[in-house]
């Protein structure tokens, strides 16, 4: 990436009020291609609100979110036309929910779940769609023999991997993840983290990962934002923030982690 290249996504002063209650306040940051940004903070700190705001899922009360489109340069995601925005959401962007059931179509097979985004952008060759689905099952370390099984027959960790495959099949440029390893056992979580790490590095993806788990943040993200009461209280390189936290809240967060 050449220095001075424009960021992929720029948030400026993103603020969201739920009536009078602030969800997130004055959040600004840039993210470049290939970069993983972690958002940490306790429950209710506004992490998820902010993630929804920057991923075109929740219009902020004020502030702008600019995305560098492939052909037309930077564009405010809430000012572009709805068809363009929805197309971006199905192609250039991915969103991985904490609960895989929110991100999967539970009534259709694993293969159809992966193929859906391809079909949504016009793929009309069954054989090719199936091949792509098998390829992605393999990439997320799932048995391709289970391609025709329904998602509810899979374990939580496998459902999460399926959700990731479903998002990555259109080669998005940025993926938003809300506690992607949230509800999983530690062993399953470790495997998923490792997978995510590899995928992000190999595909040169940008990613924004919301997590309350500092170990997850350290493992996956290049940079961190620490949020508290809707505001970013500290930001920087991941190891700076975790090894040398400066804000009282960051210090509290880091010192509260249990080390087995």
């Amino acid at each position: 990436m050449p220095p001075g290249a424009p960021p992929l996504l720029s948030a400026r002063g993103v603020t969201k009020f739920y009536d009078a209650i602030p969800g997130c306040r004055d959040v600004s940051f840039d993210i470049w291609p290939g970069e993983v940004l972690g958002i940490v903070g306790e429950s209710g700190s506004g992490k998820t609100t902010m993630l929804n705001c920057i991923s075109a899922r929740l219009e902020p009360t004020s502030g702008t979110v600019e995305y560098a489109t492939r052909h037309d340069g930077p564009a405010d995601i809430y000012r572009m036309s709805e068809p363009v925005r929805r197309l971006l959401m199905r192609t250039d962007w991915g969103f991985v929910h904490q609960n895989p059931q929110e991100g999967l179509r539970m009534g259709v097979s694993a293969g159809a779940n992966i193929g859906e985004r391809l079909m949504a952008v016009g793929a009309r060759h069954y054989g090719n769609i199936r091949e792509a689905a098998a390829d992605w099952l393999d990439k997320v370390e799932m048995d391709t023999g289970r391609m025709d099984d329904l998602p509810f027959t899979f374990s939580g960790g496998m459902q999460q991997r399926l959700q990731i495959a479903r998002n990555l099949v259109t080669a998005p440029r940025i993926v938003f993840m809300d506690e992607p390893t949230g509800g999983l056992d530690v062993s399953v979580q470790a495997r998923l983290l490792d997978l995510l790490r590899g995928l992000v590095a190999d595909l040169g993806l940008a990613a924004v990962i919301v997590t309350h788990d500092l170990a997850v943040a350290r493992l996956l993200s290049h940079r961190l934002l620490v949020m508290r009461r809707g505001k970013v209280v500290e930001s920087g390189l991941t190891d700076q923030v975790l090894d040398d936290p400066e804000h009282p809240y960051s210090q509290l967060l880091v010192s509260s982690v249990l080390h087995p």
């Binding site: 709805e82 068809p83 929805r86 179509r105 259709v108 097979s109 293969g111 159809a112 193929g115 859906e116 079909m119 949504a120 952008v121 016009g122 793929a123 009309r124 069954y126 769609i129 199936r130 391609m147 025709d148």
Partner: peptide, 22 residues
């Protein structure tokens, strides 16, 4: 209605895909 308005019909093929898969 929005899907109709924006001609977002690609996912409709998911059902046909499921047929062939099954």
């Amino acid at each position: 209605r929005k899907m109709h308005a924006l001609e977002e019909y690609g996912a409709m093929h998911v059902r046909l895909y499921e047929d062939i898969a099954r």
